[in-house]
Design a protein around this nucleic acid. Structure first.
Length: 1089
RNA sequence: GCGCCUAUAGCUCAGACGGUUAGAGCACCACACUGAUAAUGUGGGGGUCGGAGGUUCAAGUCCUCCUAGGCGCACCA
């Protein structure tokens, strides 16, 4: 390695060792690929973990739980976004000295995997699965589920996310599954798991019930749907009378959008406080309905009359106990059924008729009411959603398909319809209806047997433990997540499917000798069955069908006839992923000591929807099993939207292609774009190509240019820089103090997971670095000041470290080029204590920048171009002591004077006073007159008279103002021809001498020439240190200025030979330029020998 | 459907308790500057503060209604 040459190390093959230097404009995606290759070869990731000691009992570990994705397609921006956070936080913690293991996880079980397998096998029904054999089917699931694993790994690697794929965990591993059944059993033993019959949303196509969080996984689940709605009259059979009115033969009207549930009708619900009437219709029947609904049925009930013929009027409570003939004959005689029952919560008169048809097993409320009334539910619908015995007329018909014949039979009172039943109205009704989030088929509500976690029994504890979790954004804790817990219902955890962790329950097949065994380990299973569940390769395997094959005689059956058989269900996949915190390490069978010290985990991050998904199930299981939260802090970010502000959609192609962005803009640019957005604080983010390119421009290029600048001059000077804060130069001290503040900001932001704040701080710091420090220090680098190089080296090296997690690839190349070290990601996070603080200096330098801004504005206003030197600038009332030279240089004036604001001279610069009325103070006293005072203060119609005793009497618009009702300030007034006055935000002001003498004009012209020559040098492709031969021709004014300022021009342009002539004849690069006040000049540059 | 939140420049968002001329960043235009910079500096255009009423000396800010969007809950037979 050549001493004093940069880059010290590079991945760029185009940079030969003897010809160092970095490209001014690198192609970032290519640079990234080279850094990735370097990491792979170097083993940097592993080294970053290995170099950190886990500490006693892992006290020095930072525990990150990687939520397992279900890889059923290519990763999209949402996954990448989460992935970037999952990378940034561990990188940061590693630099802070922690050991951070990062195991990738795969969610492998469940319906999505089965559906994919069914698609590949081209089968549609569960019967076909049974036919081919569960083992064959599950093999297909196992294969299909890892189909995208390689692509995922490619994407994750390309995004520069450091993850351990080698020691990944999969929910299908026997160890993982053993932990899962352990969890089931432990909760069962605690009495937190029960088997029940519950009405659940049920997908007849996938043949599985959906848990309530699955139901809402997707926003499109509720979609408008057209259903037939029928109004049916049931024939009252009770002989009794109400209020002396005989109800026998009257018709109880009900309204339903699910005619297919009518054969299963068991009761009619009314609201006890609702007013009901009995109305005689033209068809001769008396119909009972809510009074409020009568007018909605005018056509049927009183088409010709103004008023209905009311034969009875009363409350719902009066109707209770009425009995009726069910609309279909199948369940006639069903115990306790076919009565009018009360359900005040469920019955409204907003729609329908105010009496509600009740089919016990097909509605949640229905089930609740029939349970209360002691009515056994009936279930004439099979798992495939088709009618079964005893509803013989429609057997084999899917329920939605059965609507039609059912309505037909009702209309004709034919088939199984009970005589006396009336179809009063038939209509089409559009309503919002739930659909399966997987297959998009309309769901039905159906009573099914399922196992439940009794979340309601410990949700109060979940709410308490939630208080121990730090949420980003904060409001999730008591908002979305807290509220979801408060409304938690029992969790249906079983699925009547094939590919999943088994429900570890064996039941006796003879109800006369009941017995239930629950198993929580391979060992327990082996003990009772004498063998492990083994698959066809002889490996232990808890999947179906192997686990189903284990049976044994029922020990509680003296006859020895009955057998213990496993219940066929598998567990909800969310039970798998919710077990991740312990199951990934096979707890409690292994690593218990480790688990003791690493639970709860330190950090998780996923999108906000996981508040009812993974965050929720992790929390349920952690609470139930360990009485602790599963994680101590959680970032839940917003949703990534397409470029049109809508959800990203493949078919709409409303987002940039991920791999194209990697290839064109790079992974760091995408990382920056996603991480600097409000999405990590809960907002949503619209992905646009422009936004990604802006990150390159606003951050990566400035960073790279600073590095390019450094190496350009360091190499030109052949010097070696070192980390040092020893410089006493004010600019150096300023940037180091700024750096210190920046490091402090970064540390705080990263500790709080406010990644977007860290990005913003970085952008602000880079602006100060490039647009002030480097620009103002250029000459010092040209003059080879070691202090300047050391300072810039220190700044760049430190910036690389603190932005390492945010731009891991770019900073790696820069940092290694700068230091020659192995990796910035193996370095320690910088400490503010290593950097000097100087608040006073920072304040003064910020004032300097204000002075320069104000002066530039004056030049602009007076049309005095910057290259034209001016005689002087007076700064009044701003402390910029010690920076006169910098100001003079920056705004191109010969002299800078500082004046105290109180100095007599300061008062001579046309300074005025301005009166501002404080409306808040004066308003209440003056009332409407305050407007007059305000007007006066603005128009100049005001006075301020100082009395001999020093008090001030102020009037505005003719109204006297009291102390505190106004503010009187000094502002710069109008200037004259010879000077211009400009205000600073602080109230200080600057006075610029605007007189242009011939001498100044000539010097300005000379500087125009310098600029033109520099441009010509650049156009000719000369190196910065190349010497030239320079010839200048032009008007007499030009020639005179060129002669007067020969020294300046020659020195600035590195001209070793210099000539001013009437006409340029030389060879070389000749250019015509306009200089000064419209003078023409011709310049020629030739490389000097 | 019920509840909560939001609506300010082309885009993303600030605008305690009502207070006078509604700001910032990005984007756009002009000029300036440039021996690292695909940068930068200065200035400018751009807003009936979602709409309509009301309270007040004074409303982007408070109240009512409406409209649009988001989120949560429920699913209604």
């Amino acid at each position: 390695m050549a001493e004093g040459r940069y880059p010290k190390v590079t991945t760029d093959p185009s940079t030969a060792p003897d010809q160092r230097g970095v490209p001014a404009s690198p192609r970032f995606p290519e640079l990234e690929q080279r850094v990735l290759a370097y990491w792979a070869e170097d083993g940097t990731f592993q080294a970053s973990i290995d170099q950190r000691d886990p500490g006693e009992n892992g006290s020095n570990e930072f525990v990150f739980y990687d939520g397992p994705p279900f890889a059923n397609g290519l990763p999209h921006y949402g996954h990448l976004l989460t992935g970037y956070v999952k990378d940034i936080v561990p990188r940061y913690q590693t630099m802070r000295g922690k050991r951070v293991e990062r195991r990738f996880g795969w969610d492998t079980h469940g319906l999505p995997a089965e559906l994919e397998a069914m698609r590949q096998l081209d089968i549609k029904t569960t019967d076909e699965i049974h036919e081919m054999g569960i083992d064959v089917f599950n093999d297909a699931c196992r294969t299909s589920v890892m189909k995208y694993a390689d692509v995922w790994q490619d994407y994750v690697t390309r995004q520069a996310r450091w993850v351990d794929f080698e020691h990944d965990y999969k929910t299908l591993n026997p160890d993982y599954m053993e932990s899962v059944i352990w969890a089931f059993k432990t909760m069962f033993d605690k009495g937190l798991i029960y088997e029940g019959f519950r009405v659940l949303p049920y997908c007849w196509n996938d043949e599985t019930p959906l848990s309530n969080h699955e139901l809402r996984m997707d926003d499109d689940v509720y979609k408008p749907r057209q259903d037939p709605a029928v109004t049916v009259g049931y024939d009252v059979t009770s002989a009794g009378t109400i209020d002396g009115v005989d109800f026998t033969g009257k018709k109880l009207l009900i309204w339903t959008t699910t005619p297919w549930t009518l054969p299963s009708n068991l009761a009619v619900m009314v609201g006890t406080e609702i007013d009901y009437v009995s109305v005689t219709a033209p068809d001769g029947n008396d119909y009972v309905l809510a009074e409020a609904r009568v007018s909605a049925y005018k056509k049927e009930l009183f088409p010709e009359a103004d008023e209905p013929t009311v034969t009875w009027r009363g409350k719902g409570a009066d109707l209770l106990g009425l009995t009726y003939d069910p609309p279909f004959t199948y369940y006639r005689g069903h115990e306790n059924a076919f009565r009018v029952v009360a359900a005040d919560d469920a019955v409204t008169t907003d729609s329908g008729v105010g009496l509600v048809h009740t089919a016990g097993a097909f509605g949640e409320v229905d089930k609740e009411v029939t349970d209360r009334e002691g009515i056994e539910p009936v279930m004439p619908v099979g798992k495939d959603g088709k009618f079964t015995h005893p509803v013989e007329a429609y057997v084999g018909l899917q329920v939605f398909d059965a609507n039609k014949p059912i309505i037909q039979d009702l209309k004709n009172v034919s088939g199984p319809v009970t005589p006396g039943t009336v179809l009063l109205r038939q209509e089409s009704y559009e309503h919002s209806y739930p659909h399966c989030w997987r297959c998009r088929q309309p769901l039905i509500y159906k009573g099914v047997s399922s196992w439940f976690v009794e979340v309601t029994a410990f949700k109060a504890r979940m709410a308490e433990l939630n208080q121990q979790i730090r949420w980003v954004p904060e409001h999730i804790k008591d908002g979305q997540f807290g509220k979801w817990i408060d409304n938690a219902r029992d969790w249906s955890i079983t699925r009547n499917r094939f590919w999943g962790s088994p429900v570890p329950v064996w039941k006796s097949d003879n109800p006369e000798y009941p017995r239930i065994d629950v198993y929580g380990s391979f060992e327990e299973i082996e003990r009772d069955f004498g063998t492990l569940p083994l698959n066809k390769d002889g490996e232990k395997d808890l999947h179906r069908p192997w686990v189903d094959n284990l049976t044994r005689p029922n020990p509680d059956d003296p006859t020895g006839q009955s057998t213990m058989r496993r219940v066929e269900d598998v567990l909800d996949v969310w039970f798998d992923s919710g077990s991740m915190s312990f199951a990934q390490n096979h707890v409690p069978f292994e690593h218990n000591e480790w688990f003791e010290h690493h639970f709860p985990g330190d950090f998780i991050v996923e999108y906000i929807g996981q508040t009812r998904g993974w965050f929720y199930t992790l929390h349920i299981l952690a609470t139930a099993l360990f009485d602790k939260p599963a994680f101590s802090s959680c970032v839940s970010h917003g949703i990534v939207l397409g470029s049109d502000g809508n959800k990203m959609s493949k078919s709409l192609r409303n987002y940039p292609d991920v791999s194209e962005v990697f290839d064109r803009d790079g992974a760091d640019a995408m990382r920056w774009f996603l991480m600097s957005s409000p999405i990590l604080r809960g907002g949503n983010l619209v992905v646009t190509e422009q936004g990604i390119r802006d990150s390159v421009r606003q951050v990566m290029i400035p960073l790279w240019n600073s590095w390019y600048f450094f190496q350009l001059y360091a190499n030109a000077a052949q010097l070696e820089a070192e980390a040092s804060t020893a410089s006493r130069d004010p600019l150096d001290l300023y940037i180091l103090a700024k750096l210190r503040a920046y490091v402090a900001e970064m540390t705080e932001a990263m500790d709080l997971y406010y990644v977007a704040d860290a990005c913003e701080a970085t952008q602000r710091f880079l602006d100060v670095l490039t647009n002030w420090y480097i620009r103002r220090s250029r000459e010092r680098f040209w003059n080879e000041e070691q202090d300047a190089f050391n300072t810039l080296y220190t700044v760049l090296e430190t910036v690389c470290r603190v932005t390492g997690p945010l731009l891991p690839l770019t900073t790696e190349e820069v940092w290694r080029g700068l230091t020659g070290g192995r990796s910035v990601h193996l370095a320690d996070w910088p400490s503010v204590d290593d950097l000097p603080a100087d608040d006073d200096l920072v304040a003064r330098m910020d004032a300097v920048r204000d002075v320069c801004s104000a002066t530039s504005a004056l030049r602009k206003a007076r049309k005095l171009r910057n290259r034209l030197p001016l005689a002087g600038l007076t700064v009044v009332g701003a402390d910029v002591t010690g920076f006169e030279e910098i100001i003079g240089d920056e705004v191109n004036v010969k002299g800078v004077r500082l004046l105290d604001a109180e100095a007599d001279e300061a008062k001579s610069y046309g300074v005025e006073q301005r009166l501002t009325v404080n409306a808040r103070a004066a308003g209440p006293r003056l009332g409407k007159n305050v407007q007059q005072a305000i007007k006066g203060s603005k128009s100049g119609d005001w006075t301020a008279v100082v009395a001999p005793d020093g008090t001030v009497a102020v009037t505005a618009g003719g109204l006297a103002l009291e102390e505190g009702e106004y503010t009187l300030e000094t502002v710069a007034g109008a200037a004259d021809d010879a000077s211009a006055v400009g205000m600073l935000p602080s109230g200080a002001f600057v006075v610029l001498d605007t007189v242009v003498t011939p001498e100044l004009a000539a010097e300005g012209l000379a500087r125009d020439l310098v600029r033109a020559v520099q441009q010509a040098r650049k156009d000719a492709g000369f190196q910065v240190e190349d010497r030239i031969s320079l010839t200048i021709a032009g008007t007499p004014t030009v020639q005179q200025a060129a002669r007067t300022h020969e020294h300046l021009i020659a020195q600035e342009t590195l001209a070793t030979s210099y000539a001013v002539v009437d006409a340029v004849e030389s060879a070389g690069d000749v250019s015509e330029v306009s200089v000064g006040e419209g003078d023409k000049a011709t310049i020629a540059v030739v490389l000097a020998d």
